[in-house]
């Protein structure tokens, strides 16, 4: 079943590094959910190989102007989800630039609560 673990952007890298064993855990994706009061929930979703229905979600509540740390050194395949989050929510993720779906200089942030 789905297990949610709270983390913060300061302790995220440490938490994920301790948790992530690349032969046991499969990194699914990075997800963002727009919350009320200009807050954003960022989720890092994992599942376990060969175990039924085991999903672990790390989440952190952040403001739109905060810098999200990158976990690419720990999980290389996170790069593509990080770029999507940058495009869709207009947030900043360490080392990921805009331009996967949108134009590089686009001001839009389609999925954020305060879209223009």
């Amino acid at each position: 079943m789905m297990k949610k673990i709270e983390t913060s952007i300061d302790t995220l890298k440490k938490d994920i590094k301790e948790f992530y064993d690349y032969k046991k855990w499969h990194f699914l994706t990075l997800n963002g959910v727009a919350l009320e009061d200009d807050m954003l929930e960022i989720q890092w979703i994992f599942s376990e190989y060969e175990v039924k229905n085991k999903i672990v979600v790390y989440y952190a509540h952040i403001k739109y102007d905060e810098l999200i740390p990158s976990i690419v050194e720990i999980i290389p395949s996170a790069i593509i989800s990080q770029r999507e989050i940058v495009d869709m929510f207009g947030v900043e993720v360490e080392g990921s630039q805009k331009g996967l779906y949108l134009d590089e200089d686009s001001q839009q942030k389609p999925l954020s609560g305060c879209s223009i």
Binding site: L28, T29, N31, V33, P76, S77, I80, E84, L111
Partner: peptide
């Protein structure tokens, strides 16, 4: 609904 996130197979294979 509040949020629907679709993670498709090809999308997450791009790094590989």
């Amino acid at each position: 609904l509040e949020r629907v996130r679709i993670k498709t197979p090809t999308f997450s294979s791009i790094p590989a």
